[in-house]
């Protein structure tokens, strides 16, 4: 699990806001290129890696996790060295005031989201909804200096180093969905020692946070026979709806039943988990999963897909929390699924 922690720290720190995955693709390729026989980077911001098992007529199994993270783009450079931003992907404006970000312009600079001093507030304002348009990012530069460094469209992301908490919990940014990239890489390490009955294709897709874009195009180009999509899911926290009580952090990967995925492949995944004594949980989400699963399953003529999620708290904030044990168990599960190979549907 220390291995997963190491990989997670590296992955979390790569900047790659949706739509600008190009910022981080090369570093990603440096980090994991060696796991594959060959790899390519696509125009829509995805990394595609291939491992051939060497058997003629072998089927191809796809592992998908998304590489992009939520963040912001600069939309305006204002007097006083402040930046207005628009959100990329779903951001909760409640957690932004006085928080730190990194701005990836001609060089990388630090910024602080503003918070209104009390004397500028109306009474009762702290109970009213916060809008991103009311906030700005303080860069500490003057407007002229700032215009040399950033422009409209410059990406901005949370600044938040990964840190261990008690037990095997860790906190940091972009575990959605880098922690699943870590799980896939760990699974590939497990598989190094095994005979592969199928070819493995891996896509670290771009554009998920803005609508599953990369997964559709990457799956189209790979055209696999089956697919496993890995993403994160909201773990149970106080005040979450009751039905989430069965998705506990530490309870193992959550396997989804959905009309957007293949029931047969999902049943098979559950069977593999049980056979190998790997802890798992179940989640029902028939109409929509909010992940790449639907986009992959409807690619080309249809690709049977199963969705497995790592339970996570504080999604889309700078301090997401996961359990390393869950990530380990998910890595184990998908490696056993690949090794099992006989996915006859």
């Amino acid at each position: 699990m220390d291995r997963i922690y190491e990989i997670a720290c590296e992955l979390s720190s790569i900047p790659a806001v949706s739509g600008r995955e190009d910022m981080g693709l090369h570093r990603l390729a440096e980090l994991c290129g060696d796991y594959f026989d060959r790899y390519e980077l696509t125009p829509v911001g995805s990394f595609i890696g291939r491992i051939d098992c060497g058997r003629i007529g072998a089927k191809t199994l796809l592992f998908d996790a998304h590489f992009d993270e939520v963040g912001f783009f600069v939309s305006e450079i204002c007097e006083g060295g402040f930046l207005k931003v628009v959100n990329i992907g779903g951001i909760d404006p409640r957690i932004l005031s006085a928080s730190e970000v990194l701005i990836y312009g001609k060089r990388t600079i630090t910024g602080v989201f503003t918070s209104k001093p009390p004397h500028l507030q109306e009474p009762g304002e702290s109970e009213k909804p916060i809008k991103l348009t009311d906030l700005a990012v303080d860069t500490g530069y003057l407007k002229e200096q700032l215009s040399e460094i950033v422009s409209i469209g410059t990406p901005v992301a949370y600044k938040s180093p990964v840190e261990r908490l008690q037990g095997d919990y860790i906190t940091g940014k972009s575990f959605d969905d880098r922690i699943c990239i870590a799980a896939i890489l760990r699974a590939l390490e497990f598989l190094k020692e095994k005979e592969l009955p199928v070819n493995i294709a891996v896509q670290f897709s771009g554009g998920e946070e803005i609508g599953y874009k990369g997964a559709a195009t990457a799956s189209y180009s790979i055209n696999p026979d089956f697919a496993v999509v890995l993403d994160v899911t909201n773990a149970y926290v106080p005040d979450a709806p009751d039905y989430r009580k069965d998705i506990k952090i530490g309870g193992g990967g959550s396997i989804s039943y959905s009309a957007k995925t293949s029931r047969k492949l999902t049943d098979k995944t559950v069977a593999v988990a049980r056979k190998n004594g790997i802890p798992y949980q179940l989640f029902a989400e028939p109409n929509r999963t909010g992940t790449n699963a639907g986009a992959v399953q409807t690619s080309r003529g249809g690709i049977p897909t199963v969705l497995i999620s790592v339970p996570l708290k504080n999604m889309h904030t700078a301090n997401e929390v996961v359990s390393l044990l869950d990530v380990y168990n998910v890595a184990k599960l998908i490696s056993e699924l690949a090794a099992d190979g006989g996915i006859d549907l």
Partner: peptide, 8 residues
């Protein structure tokens, strides 16, 4: 970490 309910 001061928890924050996910936007979803």
């Amino acid at each position: 970490v001061i928890a924050s309910k996910a936007i979803h």
